[in-house]
Design a protein around this nucleic acid. Structure first.
Lengths: 208, 208
DNA sequence: CTAACATGGATAGTGGAGGTATCCAATTTG
DNA sequence: CAAATTGGATACCTCCACTATCCATGTTAG
């Protein structure tokens, strides 16, 4: 298909598609001649994925590029893919490497017996957040953290359960990405509602 | 204290403080004369809170304003405060009100027996995410959703447990906001690591 | 074959967000 | 009283995600 058809099918304007090509979010089509290129279903899928990551999840173009790159790179390696932390938050880069919190996080992972890559970005994210909380005078004790981690384990079991019927590795990778990233706002929304409910329950809110 | 001292103590430049005043994130100080104003510890706390919400969590200035407004408005009403959904995602506003997913979400809340305000923004957020997933051909069955919701309940119990030693309502409100909002990236980081671990466990990843 | 239209690629421009720099008059301080 | 500081207003800046325009090449209807 031609670019204009890709545009029609995806609902993304031709100029924006060109922009994504320039930014390396979308691979180039097969060149037919100096001024014609052919796109296929993969381009369409990729384009939809881009729109979801940037639109629904609010990822920046560069964060999206990284996510998509990881998808291509670790297509067969679901472990790594699932461990990815998709930016969208903070300036990244120069997060303190050897903070107190980082040590604490590493110890926690050890204690939990988790098999997690040492350079997993999630470790830094967790450390950073704990640091911010402490700076604000809202300390967070180890026990609470472990309790949350146990719940995270059970969430992960559910997550992986969603994936185990899928055979095609590329499809698996894409699903994994979507589940990891897109489900986040949904889980947080559930948490908010559960908090409201729990608060009402405790303080005898009674139905409104 | 004067604005310059507020600046020194908070690490936020004077011009940026002026910007926050203009944007209504920070209440004006007590006017001493036409060109002097007095700020106090509350301003400092507020300023730190602003920086955390915008910096660590990446909230936009308008989302931060809403969050802070809610804090003032519902200082005594923890239920509502906890139910808040803090933007930062999507264009908001014109989310389809009566989608299939919205109905599904309402039914889910009913089934769970949750006491959640009917207009809680989290309902819309959840519905929207489920809609996106369905559009991408990654349907999400009711059972899985209920399972996630049960885990959310347990997370909420932990969350509320962090708050029950606090008496001062203003402090309580602020903690609630921080816990709701700041803990999100931490919980998601835990989930990512737990996923990686679970994936390794299932597919016999073995230690790297 | 040719004239009109479509296509891909390059470059420049747009609008919004989040600050930042400058200016000024009133006020405080030495 | 002179110099420095303060608060307030306004204009400007930079980055990001697009978007509009141009142009040379290609395709297609007659």
């Amino acid at each position: 298909m031609r670019m204009s058809e890709l545009s029609r099918l995806s609902g993304v304007s031709v100029t924006t598609i060109k922009y994504y090509l320039r930014e390396g979010l979308l691979p180039a089509g097969r060149q037919l001649s100096a001024t014609q290129a052919e796109y296929d279903g993969n381009h369409l899928r990729r384009l939809r994925l881009i729109r979801v990551l940037t639109g629904v999840r609010g990822l920046s173009v560069s964060a999206t590029r990284e996510a998509l790159g990881a998808l291509a790179e670790h297509a067969g390696d679901t472990h790594r893919l699932l461990g990815l932390t998709l930016g969208s938050i903070g300036p990244a880069g120069d997060a303190a490497e050897d903070s107190t919190e980082r040590t604490e996080v590493d110890a926690l992972v050890e204690e939990l017996g988790w098999d997690v890559h040492g350079s997993a970005p999630a470790r830094a994210t967790l450390a950073e957040t704990l640091g911010s909380l402490r700076d604000l005078g809202v300390p967070f004790d180890r026990n609470a953290l472990v309790s949350y981690a146990r719940l995270a384990e059970r969430t992960a079991v559910l997550d992986l359960g969603q994936l185990d019927r899928i055979d095609d590795p590329l499809e698996l990778a894409e699903r994994a990405l979507l589940l990891t990233v897109l489900l986040e706002p949904a889980l947080m929304a559930l948490r908010r509602m559960a908090q409201e409910n729990e608060s009402a329950r405790r303080h005898g809110g009674g139905r409104r």
